[in-house]
């Protein structure tokens, strides 16, 4: 019985860890892609958004907003509440 319940809790934990890895990879690709994709040309050819160079705006400002939205979405949608105590089981 104890085994059953734990397997389940750890399965949830494993899935959430994988979501974390996925988010970090996405975060990195977004950040890297915009920064070096748009920022590698000569500064005289830069375009600007709200006064900031476009590469910086998309990579750092929009990137942050996108990550916040994604984190909220995944936590609300896929994170499950579990108990942390081994209730009723032997203490050690």
């Amino acid at each position: 019985m104890k085994k059953q319940k734990e397997d389940n809790r750890f399965k949830i934990a494993n899935r959430e860890a994988l979501i974390g890895v996925g988010l970090v990879l996405f975060n990195f690709i977004w950040w890297f892609g915009f920064a070096y994709g748009m920022g590698s040309k000569d500064p005289s050819q830069y375009t600007y958004v709200f006064g900031l160079p476009a590469w910086f705006f998309y990579s750092c400002v929009v990137g942050l907003i996108v990550m916040v939205v994604l984190v909220i979405f995944f936590v609300k949608k896929y994170f499950v509440e579990v108990s942390f105590d081994d209730k009723g089981d032997d203490e050690k």
Binding site: F10, A13, N27, A35, D85, D86
Partner: peptide, 30 residues
């Protein structure tokens, strides 16, 4: 701005640490 870009690598800490150590660490350390 290049250094701001570098500093933004820290955004990941906000979610990564708790998601990876997460519930498993909480259960096991308890």
């Amino acid at each position: 701005l290049g250094w701001v870009l570098l500093a933004m690598s820290q955004v990941a800490t906000g979610y990564f640490v708790l998601m990876i150590l997460g519930k498993k660490f909480a259960i096991i350390t308890r």
